[in-house]
Computed example of a mutant assay.
Amino acid sequence: GRHPGLRFVFADGGYDILTPLMWRLDTFWMSMRDQTPWVDRFPSAYLQDHVRFCTSALDGPTDESQAERWMDFTDKADLLMYGSNYPHWSTTGPDAVVAGLNDAQREKVLCRNASEMYGLVEGSLL
């Protein structure tokens, strides 16, 4: 593309629309591929290279035992970064945000995704 280094971070909301957004992008693209011949993969696949969402709460199942599966659905753990939402009254600590996630998902949400997005460090920090 024309702007391979362009990145977007939705820092105050937007994560709640991620699953339906990804589904809609891919579904509509399948039926309209002839109108966008330069798009050579599912539109949701572009998100990994260009988009991140900050969250201070897991938007998904309220049952922690389902959180890991929910994050694996459409690989959302790769797109999410923890943000405390401080100083708002709804500030949430990182432990609450990653409750129920596996070790790899926790590392991505709490550290790796932001680190890679902003080019801070290489490798694991947790």
Rank of each mutant, 00 (worst) to 15 (best):
G1N: 14
G1D: 15
P4I: 14
G5L: 14
L6Y: 12
L6S: 14
F8R: 12
V9H: 15
F10M: 11
D12I: 14
G13F: 12
G13E: 08
G14F: 12
G14Q: 01
G14D: 09
Y15P: 06
D16S: 10
D16F: 10
I17S: 07
L18P: 04
L21F: 03
M22W: 00
W23E: 00
R24C: 03
D26N: 03
D26S: 00
D26M: 02
T27E: 08
F28A: 08
F28N: 08
W29L: 06
W29E: 03
M30Y: 01
M30A: 08
S31E: 10
D34L: 01
T36E: 06
P37S: 13
P37V: 11
P37C: 13
W38P: 05
W38Y: 09
V39R: 03
V39G: 06
D40W: 12
F42R: 13
F42N: 10
A45R: 10
A45E: 12
Y46N: 09
L47F: 04
Q48K: 13
H50V: 10
V51P: 08
R52I: 07
R52D: 02
C54L: 12
C54A: 02
L58Y: 05
L58F: 03
D59I: 01
G60N: 03
P61F: 01
D63K: 01
D63C: 00
E64D: 03
E64M: 09
A67I: 09
M71F: 06
F73Y: 10
T74R: 08
T74E: 04
D75F: 09
K76S: 05
K76I: 02
K76D: 07
A77P: 10
A77D: 14
D78I: 03
D78K: 12
L79F: 00
L79H: 03
L79W: 02
L79M: 04
M81E: 01
G83C: 03
S84D: 04
Y86V: 05
Y86N: 01
H88G: 07
W89G: 14
G93D: 06
P94D: 01
D95V: 09
D95A: 06
A96T: 11
A99S: 12
G100Q: 07
L101E: 14
N102D: 15
D103T: 13
A104W: 05
Q105K: 12
R106I: 09
E107Q: 15
E107L: 13
E107P: 11
K108N: 08
K108M: 02
V109Y: 07
V109C: 13
V109P: 07
C111R: 10
R112Q: 10
N113G: 04
N113Y: 00
S115Q: 11
M117G: 00
M117H: 06
M117N: 07
Y118G: 13
G119C: 08
E122Y: 15
E122Q: 15
S124A: 15
S124R: 15
L125T: 10
L125G: 08
